[in-house]
Simulated assay, not measured.
Amino acid sequence: MLLVLLLGGCVTAVPVQQANTGVGQMTAQRLSEIAGYELPASTPEALPEVSAVVITEGSRANVRSGPGLDFPIVAKANPGDTFTVVGKSQDGEWWQVCCVNGSDEAQGDTAWLASVVVEIDGDGDAVPVVTPLFDENLEATWRVDWQCGSERCDVKHCTATVHATAGESGNQQWLQVAHEAQWADDCFPPDSWVFQVDRYTGRERSGQFIDNFLYNYWLGMEPGPATNVFTLDDGRKVVVWCSGPHELEIAEGDGWDTVYQGETCHDVRTGTLVSLSYTKRWLFTGEYQGQQYERAYFGDYETLEQYLVDANYSLYYVD
């Protein structure tokens, strides 16, 4: 949510020290150092030696990013090309193979071939099934706490709930995830937006907010290294990657700019946003009462903290 505080002409005689930024108190109380936990050791799964040989006659086979015709073509395979099979779709109609586009197994660039264009060499029944990270019933809920540090604010403090639900998209790859923000006591009007989220990678593809940390709800699987453990309301502990400080600047007009500075934490399994905290400051450039200002800060700011309450899919939980 980008909340715009209307502060036209809102200045005092002299600039003041900048508002504090960084992780908010509520978020800090829920974060623990990763060193205090023993994370499950990741043991590589022993895969059977199975190969997929392209059997198209004369034409090349489409290699896709996922197990379905809705997924984009990422490469072409010639008749006789052989790939190592590392997984299969739930319906058995697609094989996940390694490796494509000249990569090797260390890079792990996997893709998918339809079963009708390949012949399997080995025990295909022993190949593990690859399941989507999210299914069509995806739901997640966040709690929001917002405060205003300006005397001009009609509302000083408000809370909200953000609820995300996936709707029917008719697409094998992309989920249409609708987000609804409802503010307590009608402090602000409801807000809503929709992201398309890849059900296999967990990444959203709106593009519009890719560099906007305020909207980084879905970064995709393994967004970064485990740095902390976040405790949810019900006591479950989620291994997260925390990053920042992030900064975003928006020109508001009439000499005013807003600067957001904050930090985020994301679940290391799915890339789901687990916590967000920021301070938003108003800076003024221009002339006021005969005095010239350059990006002056006069003490007007907002703070927001948001954290995950629940999700109906598997996060990286730890005891």
Rank of each mutant, 00 (worst) to 15 (best):
D198Q: 02
R203S: 13
D186F: 04
A184K: 12
F209E: 08
T165F: 07
S169I: 05
A160G: 03
V155T: 14
E204S: 14
D198P: 06
G170Q: 13
W174P: 03
H179D: 09
Q172A: 13
P190R: 08
W146G: 07
G167E: 10
W183V: 10
Q182A: 14
P190L: 09
G149R: 01
S206E: 12
A166Y: 09
T161S: 03
W146K: 07
G149Y: 04
A181F: 15
D198C: 07
G202L: 06
S169F: 01
V197S: 04
W183M: 15
E180G: 02
Y200M: 08
T165S: 07
D154N: 04
A181P: 00
V194H: 03
W193G: 11
P189K: 12
A164K: 00
W193R: 04
F188C: 11
Q173M: 05
H157L: 03
S169Y: 02
D186A: 14
H163Y: 15
D185G: 07
H163P: 02
D191P: 00
S192T: 14
Q172N: 07
F195R: 13
F209I: 10
G170F: 09
G170A: 08
E168H: 13
N171E: 05
W146M: 02
Q173F: 01
S169K: 01
W193V: 06
A160F: 01
D145Q: 10
G149D: 02
R152M: 12
R143I: 06
K156S: 06
D198K: 01
Q182H: 10
T161I: 10
A181Q: 13
F188D: 12
D185Q: 15
T161M: 04
A184I: 04
V144Y: 13
A181M: 14
R152N: 10
T165H: 15
A166H: 05
N171T: 06
V194W: 00
G202I: 02
C158S: 15
S150T: 14
T201E: 14
D154E: 14
A166D: 01
A164F: 13
D185T: 12
V177G: 05
P189F: 07
D186S: 14
W146L: 13
A178W: 09
C148F: 00
W174T: 08
A184D: 15
S150D: 08
Q172W: 04
T165W: 01
W146C: 04
T161V: 06
Q196L: 10
P189E: 15
C153W: 02
Q172C: 13
D191I: 05
F188R: 11
Q172K: 04
A184P: 00
R143F: 07
D145V: 11
R199T: 05
G202K: 11
G202F: 11
W146I: 09
A184M: 10
Q147L: 02
Y200Q: 12
E168G: 04
R203Q: 15
L175F: 12
S169L: 06
D145F: 05
C148L: 03
V155R: 04
A160Q: 05
H163R: 15
C187F: 03
A178H: 11
T201R: 12
C148M: 04
E204N: 10
D145A: 07
G167C: 01
T161C: 00
S192G: 03
Q176N: 09
R152H: 06
Q182G: 02
R152Q: 09
E180R: 12
F188W: 14
G149E: 00
E180I: 12
R203Y: 00
A178F: 10
